Computed example of a mutant assay.
Amino acid sequence: MMRLPDSGAEVLADGRRLPASAQRNAAPILQVLQEFDLRGSLLEIASGSGLHAGYMAPQLQVDWQPSDVDPGNMASITAWARGVAQVRPPLLLDATQPGWHRQLPPQDAVLLVNLLHLIPEASAAVLLAEVAACLAPQGRAFLYGPFLREGLATSQGDAAFDASLRAQDPAIGYKDLAWVLDLLANSGLQTEVRAMPANNLMLIAQTHSQS
């Protein structure tokens, strides 16, 4: 089993998991989302514990659809969504499989947090293409996480974490920012890059036709 910093996250009596990274990054991510007048549907890919849905959805005007590839995460996501009217029941979704966007209506927003470095490049390329394909005409994708710049980690902590991931599976690890931006551009999206706490980035991708 892959060893990640959030392994062994605290679990509350009601079944909600409390991953440390999600607790740290929820407020900064929400602050970015609140800059935009988000309405309609928001698909969260790789919801994990469900903490983001439970924390952010009540503070946004969106219909929040959590999803995850791991059936073992459904209970925690459901627990976090309990009593939050804006959060739909979690969807079992492997977002690295081609064609999944056809199973869903067009999305006004997509949120992806801390996944790209945990999957191979080929899977990441499929995911990014599918995210672009699932967006409604005025939709935006918010992609948060750590990235390489010009092939290099930009902090000792990032270099160590990237090395630990590649030691566990040589196919995974941090993706280069330029590579991700090229894939998004090839899918018809223009992307704004925001610096975030702990040396992470938020990529805000939207169609070229938007002002």
Rank of each mutant, 00 (worst) to 15 (best):
R166Y: 01
M196Y: 08
R17F: 05
G145F: 05
D108M: 09
E150D: 15
M1I: 14
N114I: 03
A125N: 15
D162A: 02
S123C: 12
L148A: 08
A205P: 01
H208K: 15
T207I: 15
D169M: 05
Y144F: 11
D37V: 12
L116F: 01
I204N: 06
R82V: 06
D70V: 12
G157T: 09
P28F: 02
E150V: 12
G139H: 04
C134K: 11
L116E: 01
I172L: 00
P5M: 08
P120G: 06
V87F: 03
L177S: 11
S155D: 11
Y55L: 12
A46K: 10
L165P: 03
A163K: 09
Y55C: 11
N114K: 06
W80Q: 01
S155W: 09
M56I: 11
D169P: 04
A57N: 10
G151T: 07
S47G: 03
I119L: 08
A79Y: 00
G72P: 09
L112G: 06
L184H: 00
L177P: 02
W179Y: 12
F142T: 09
A198W: 13
L135E: 03
H117D: 03
L184C: 03
A53R: 07
A124W: 04
Q190C: 15
A122Q: 14
L4W: 10
D176V: 09
G173K: 01
Q190K: 13
N186G: 15
E44S: 05
N200H: 05
M2P: 13
A13K: 10
I77G: 00
A171E: 07
S76A: 11
S7F: 14
V32P: 05
P5T: 05
R166G: 01
Q190N: 15
A46C: 15
A160I: 13
D94E: 10
A133W: 05
W80R: 05
L128P: 00
A153F: 06
A46M: 11
Q210C: 13
V84M: 04
